[in-house]
Amino acid sequence: MERGDFLPFLLLLPVMLVVFFVMFLPLVYGIVISLFDYHMGDLDFGRDFVGLGNYIRMMQDKVFWKSTVNTLYFTAGAIAGDLFFGTLVSVWIQSLNERIRPIIRPIVTIPLLVSPIIIGLIWKYMFNINGGMVYWILSWFGLGAEQFPGLAGSSTAMFCAIVAHWWQVIPFVVIVLSSGLVSIPNDYYEAAEMDGASFIQKFFKISLPSLMPQYMVILLFNGVDAIKVFDIIYALTGGGPNNSTMSLSLYAYKNAFDHFDMGYAMAISNATMLISFLVFGIVFVRYNAKARKEGIKG
């Protein structure tokens, strides 16, 4: 409370130490090393210094640009589907009888608890051309690997990864949106019904505007999550075919641990961070400013 009140800082110390040593320090170290041509082992400050060399190399690297486009495509597709299908499912759950709702929820939320690497594995199995469930279902409509090459096609593989991501993340969207829907007062809907509003009108005029804070949270958390996608693609395609599913995280990872090209890998991973900040920093700043205004009582 007064000057020289150390207790709060003392309580914060362990977390701050961990954040400093395991997040902040590696971050700074990564920025420094990205200026060197470094392949593990000893670093010679004079000989290995390349300045912005790694970044210039990155700008000329076709695979880097492909990974960037892929990552943005994945993020956009993932979020669009998350929001669309998530909204559909939560509106459906909302329309159910209150006795059924608590039974449905635990089942719908199962995918949320499954590890992303397992999700990749599951969908690799589902999209398997030999005996995968997806191809069995497609065969009902006379479709096969020729029309939809799935994981083997460079135009369709990323879509498969997006589907796997939807399966995992939509439950999160449903939980968050459902909590928002429950908090909308019933009077609003009753008043609208008196005026003869249809189901669709009620949704667009009442539910959607009231859910804006929830959409904001989903956009922030899922968006950041999607832009750093790694595990699902690692399991599903490993970046192929023909780099068509290479994401930025995966490309940095490969440079670091397949080629031990650490300096270059750090340049790519720093670019990944920069892109994450550029795309979601604005959402974040607005979210945080709002939280600060309303939330923190101190």
């Binding site: 395991v22 997040m23 971050l27 790694f230 940095a252 991973s269 720093n270 961070m273």
Partner: peptide
């Protein structure tokens, strides 16, 4: 804000450290 940090950005330098 630390939530915005991609895991890979920390992981590679942390590996070297």
């Amino acid at each position: 804000f630390s939530k915005l940090l991609p895991a890979i950005t920390i992981m590679i330098p942390l590996y070297v450290m």
